[in-house]
């Protein structure tokens, strides 16, 4: 694969693996949420994320040019070939932690997709345009829930603050740049991740302040997911479930 296609392939895996792994996590809630409306909303969010995965990984397979489908990429790669950020791999925790994670991701994704809509690569812009409609709703909902629970009862406030404390060190990874990003910027395909930070901080700051929650001071950020250098231990367990049928019955048609 030419070097520039390799970079685009890696970029698409980053987009698709995030939605795949987060979609998996959110779908774990099915039937177990605090109230029926949330069961519906969580299933709907997971459904959107899996739908977006089909587009991103489908295009990744096309760019790679080796005949791999979105399913091949989702179900037949091992941990080290995944490019998901650590944030989406983390276990769900309680409902508050799940919704805080969702908000921290939705805020980034909504800004990222907004930029990608003017990508020089039309296929990327088309996916971004479609996904951005769904994500606009996701961020509205997750932000609303974070505010409601942050500024709810004493208990809900404490739980949301604890969730933010736990998740904040995983936010920074979304804004780290490397050679792949430089190549994407050079070709006008995608923005430099670092360039999204200001808008992100403004959006997240506004919502968390309305939620009466305090952003931790420590700027430390875990990393290793989007580069694939060092994923969390959790990812391997996700894959044992997600890929089980495809691995146990190779070549079967489902």
């Amino acid at each position: 694969m030419p070097k520039q296609d390799e970079a685009l392939f890696q970029f698409l895996l980053r987009m698709g693996d995030n939605t795949l792994v987060l979609g998996h996590r959110v779908s774990e809630w099915c039937g177990h949420s605090p109230v029926l409306e949330e069961d519906i909303a969580l299933a709907n969010t997971a459904l959107d994320l899996i739908g977006q995965t089909q587009f991103w990984l489908g295009l990744a397979g096309e760019v790679e040019g080796k005949g791999r489908s979105a399913d091949d990429l989702a179900f037949l790669r091992d941990v080290w070939d995944f490019r998901s950020i650590l944030l989406v791999e983390l276990p769900n925790g309680d409902f508050g932690q799940t919704l805080m994670r969702q908000f921290l991701f939705d805020a980034w994704q909504s800004i990222m997709l907004g930029r990608l809509m003017s990508s020089s690569e039309k296929r990327v812009a088309d996916i971004a345009e479609k996904a951005s409609k769904e994500v606009a709703y996701h961020v509205e909902r997750s932000a609303g829930t974070v505010v409601g629970l942050g500024d709810g009862t004493e208990e809900s406030h404490e739980r949301m603050q604890a969730a933010l404390q736990h998740l904040w060190p995983y936010v920074g990874e979304m804004f780290m740049s490397d050679d792949i990003d430089a190549e994407m910027v050079k070709r006008g395909i995608a923005p430099d991740p670092a360039s999204l930070r200001e808008e992100y901080d403004a959006l997240v700051g506004r919502v968390l302040s309305e939620a009466t929650l305090t952003i931790p001071d420590d700027p430390f950020a875990h990393k290793g997911g989007r580069t694939g250098k060092q994923h969390s231990e959790h990812l391997g367990h996700i894959l044992t479930q997600m890929q089980w049928l495809q691995r146990a019955y190779p070549g079967a048609n489902w």
């Binding site: 949420s33 605090p34 508050g96 629970l149 009862t153 208990e155 809900s156 739980r159």
Partner: peptide, 8 residues
Amino acid sequence: GAWVRDGL
């Protein structure tokens, strides 16, 4: 989910 419903 009780704390979630109460919080909201």
